Simulated assay, not measured.
Amino acid sequence: MLPTAETTFRPGDTGYEDELAGFQTGFSRRPTLIVGAADAEEVRSAVAYAAGHGLPAGVQATGHGLPGAADGGVLTGPGAPVMSVVQINHLGGALEREPKTPNAVPFRDARYLVRVLNPLDGPDLDAVRALHGRAFGVLEPLTVGRSLNFAFGGGDRTQGLYDAERLERLAGVKSLYDPANLFRQNYNISPGGR
């Protein structure tokens, strides 16, 4: 049985060549089947299909890596509505020690930093927002907060950046040194915390 992915391509199918195209152009391969998997079940289905037919299987992650399945194999890759880069950094305790002089770095107990990045020159922004919502929704039970260095987008960009105690301390510093809120074109903390 063919994998369940809606984006399944064989040689000669419209879209097959587009699925093979990527940033890594130094290698040529002709897999028997390409599966644009959108979730873990579609990846499982593609791997089961390859195993059931004695075909090699490979993964092509957005075209940057070395080729996945060689000629005659099954290649699975991202089937997300837009190209995405997911980066997971193990922090290894790098933030755990509080400095002698308090600073603005929150959530020192974080064990990982997860980023989801998408190009914004063409994709449907609603699709990007929906993709981010699904990705971070899965991680919500494990999330301790957001990283100031990677807080992009509109709206209240400071929401979730600081725990209550740190936010109160930073608002006090802002009230003391910038009561007119002149420096507000960044991740603004208003004087008084409002």
Rank of each mutant, 00 (worst) to 15 (best):
A51Q: 14
L167H: 15
R134F: 00
D109Q: 13
S147Y: 05
K100A: 14
E98Y: 06
T62K: 01
V105W: 01
L75F: 00
R134S: 06
F23K: 01
G68N: 05
G26H: 14
D13F: 08
H90G: 12
L95D: 06
D18P: 00
A48V: 11
F136A: 02
D163W: 00
E41S: 15
L55Q: 04
L75E: 04
P141R: 04
L176H: 13
R129W: 13
L120W: 08
G26P: 04
R146H: 15
F9C: 07
N118E: 14
N103I: 06
A61M: 07
F9Y: 15
Q87A: 13
R194Q: 12
D124P: 02
V105R: 05
A57W: 05
D39W: 09
E96G: 06
V86D: 03
P31H: 03
D156I: 01
L120C: 06
G193N: 12
D163C: 05
D13H: 13
P56C: 08
V128M: 09
R108P: 01
R30F: 04
K100V: 07
A38M: 15
T76I: 01
G154E: 07
K174A: 04
A80K: 01
V59R: 10
V43T: 09
G36L: 10
H53E: 10
H90K: 06
D121P: 02
P141S: 05
L131G: 06
T76E: 00
F183K: 02
T32M: 15
V105D: 01
T14Q: 09
L2H: 11
E42T: 02
H64T: 09
V116L: 14
A110I: 11
N149H: 06
A21Q: 07
S45P: 01
Q159R: 11
S28H: 05
D156V: 00
F150P: 00
V82R: 06
T62N: 09
G92C: 10
M83N: 05
E140T: 11
